[in-house]
Design a protein around this nucleic acid. Structure first.
Length: 612
DNA sequence: ATAGGGTTAG
């Protein structure tokens, strides 16, 4: 080989390692000047270097001008687009491989194309590529097979992933990791653990795959136990990816004390200023209802990206601070960060919280016109929520009928709470019927329907709904609330009477009840789904889990500190009223995270504006 | 010379 060719080859390799785009362009210019730009393998190497430096445009330009393109050129170009997160382009260009250069895919190309399918979740095309691969001369290639394992795993087909995995002759760590991650993220806990146990050598990579997969499938508790086990095994956390999943688990479970401990670990390991991790910490504190800590982390961040801004906007919006969310949005735009579709979910949500109808309409329009974002179903749902909360029921109905999506459960639920709020029983019943037909197994649909009837005083229908639930064997999930006192966590179930402090709790609730009635409280038993005497119903309400947790908190927590409660179901209307009364009687802030939102009770008011 | 696995916001 020509001495200068190998010189440039060496330089390009260095440049690929350091990923400095200016050097890539300089080297390209020098190569042209030296008239070596057609000497193989320089054109292909250059193509790869452009890809690694993130210069897809230059890569494509070079590719277009190459007189002789081979398999390596194609593989490099497709990989460049995968790396630039443009898997759509990877697939669309792949279609022209045969047409423009009469080339059939080789194993390198197959691997890139499969990866593109997996990041798009394009299972139909993925299966087609799989078939072509099986018919090709490369059908025994293990690298392509491991990319197929990953594709099926990511598309939620772990059994297909397993079938490919079993066909691999020499299984690499990569294929193991892909499969374990696939099982974990599909919620196949036992399969994931079984494969993990069989894994000959467990690296940080494999632990991360398992733990993050479990967090993604909502198995946060298992994920946290595995994280503890990983620490016990002495695995060196040389990069922080596993920490973001762990912080995420704390966020999903709303376990503030544990979250703080993991935060301490993050700082101890030296990742306190890592962008990714700070983003998850902002989210975690917001979800654990410590919005002050969330703002503190956000304020201290050296660099902030769209996720950082969106996390804090969504966080304050969920805590009912709409004006603050909108101010933050101005700050975001001012800082030159472009909002994305998630940001707009938060913003529309914020507007709907305080009934900023025209502001919300303007934001919805701006999203489409200024940022070219096509609204998805979730945007429509938030927007509907805004319209229906503020009483624009017919406009909401029009939107639901004209939007380009089939309404899903949250959509109907948004409309339904509005019907209830505005006493529109007829529409409420229609909506509840839709909801019920969409998900006849979900107890909350029945509760909502029953509440509509109860709100209208249609007691016979309330009874019918209850009978329907029995007939269909739909069981209401038992309600429970948890509360942290110091580092201890306590869980209370509705109606629980076996707690060691039950007498103290009962006495306190009795005392508060008397004081509330003096101030005008009348129990609203329409939320109780049973046929029984009024007094019996009130007794049931009295033992709702959030009240037990609250009383325990008042007895045990440091005086003056806010009481934080996490509930698995939605707070019932009567408890909501009670919590407002109690916040003003005991002059304490009470923060409840229920199944759908946050309630900050303070001085007799709630941040949700009595709408949830 | 080119390929495959683990990370954050709804």
């Amino acid at each position: 080989m020509n001495a200068s060719v190998s010189h440039y080859l060496h330089q390009l390799k260095l440049c690929a390692g350091s990923q400095t785009s200016s050097t890539a362009k300089k080297l390209h210019a020098q190569i042209i000047k030296a008239a070596l730009h057609l000497c193989p393998p320089l054109p292909n190497t250059l193509l790869g270097v452009y890809g690694k430096c993130g210069l897809v445009g230059d890569a494509l330009h070079l590719f277009d001008e190459m007189p002789h393109r081979d398999h390596v050129s194609w593989a490099s170009l497709l990989t460049a687009h995968n790396q630039a997160s443009l898997p759509h382009r990877t697939l669309s260009m792949f279609r022209f491989m045969y047409e423009s250069d009469s080339l059939l895919p080789d194993h390198f190309v197959f691997a890139s194309v499969v990866k593109a399918c997996s990041s798009l979740g394009a299972i139909r095309q993925g299966k087609q590529v799989h078939a072509r691969f099986m018919l090709s001369q490369f059908c025994e290639d293990d690298v392509v097979k491991s990319s197929l394992v990953d594709m099926y795993a990511k598309c939620g087909l772990p059994d297909n992933a397993r079938a490919v995995f079993d066909s691999i002759s020499k299984r690499s760590v990569v294929s193991w990791t892909a499969l374990i991650s696939g099982y974990a993220r599909s919620g196949r806990k036992l399969d994931a653990l079984e494969m993990f146990e069989k894994l000959p050598v467990k690296s940080l990579f494999s632990w991360t795959a398992l733990i993050s997969g479990l967090v993604q499938s909502g198995n946060g508790v298992d994920a946290l136990y595995l994280f503890i086990e990983m620490r016990r095994e002495g695995v060196d956390i040389v990069d922080p990816l596993v920490l973001s999943s762990t912080v995420g688990a704390c966020a999903n479970l709303a376990v503030l004390e544990l979250g703080k401990q993991v935060h301490g670990l993050v700082i101890g390991l030296g990742y306190g200023s890592c962008l990714f991790i700070s983003n998850t910490l902002v989210d975690m504190y917001a979800k654990c209802s410590d919005i002050l800590a969330a703002k503190y982390i956000f304020g201290g961040m050296q660099q902030k990206d769209v996720v950082s801004w969106t996390s804090i906007i969504v966080g304050v919006a969920q805590h009912g601070r709409a004006e603050e969310a909108l101010t933050l949005y101005d700050g975001m735009v001012g800082a030159g960060i472009k909002p994305n579709e998630v940001t707009f979910v938060g913003l529309i949500y914020a507007c709907s919280h305080v009934g900023f109808v025209s502001k919300g309409r303007a934001i919805f329009r701006s999203m489409i016109e200024d940022y070219g974002i096509r609204p998805c179903l979730q945007h429509y749902t938030c927007f509907l929520d805004l319209l229906s909360r503020s009483g624009h029921l017919s406009e909401a109905w029009n939107v639901i009928n004209s939007m380009p999506f089939e309404p899903d459960e949250p959509t109907w639920a948004a409309l339904l709470s509005a019907c209830k709020q505005h006493g529109d029983t007829q529409m409420g019943i229609r909506v509840a019927d839709h909801l019920l037909s969409l998900n006849p197994e979900d107890p909350s649909s029945y509760i909502l329907l029953s509440n509509v009837y109860a709100g209208a005083g249609m007691w016979e229908n309330v009874a019918k709904v209850r009978k329907l639930m029995t007939a269909r064997e739909v069981k209401k999930n038992p309600g429970y609330s948890s509360i942290d006192i110091g580092k201890e966590s306590q869980v209370f179930y509705a109606g629980e009477t076996s707690h060691p402090l039950k007498d103290e709790i009962f006495d306190l609730l009795k005392e508060l009840d008397a004081e509330m009635r003096k101030r005008g409280y009348v129990p609203d038993s329409s939320f109780v789904l049973h046929d029984m005497e009024q007094q019996e119903k009130e007794k049931l309400l009295f033992w709702h889990s959030e009240r037990l947790a609250l009383a325990y908190g008042l007895l045990k927590a440091v005086p003056g500190t806010p009481i934080r409660i996490v509930k698995n179901l939605r707070v019932c209307g009567d408890c909501h009223t009670v919590l407002k009364f109690i916040s003003s009687i005991v002059k304490r802030d009470i923060i409840v995270r229920d199944a759908t939102r946050y309630h900050h009770f303070s001085k007799g008011e709630c941040s949700c504006n009595d709408f949830w």
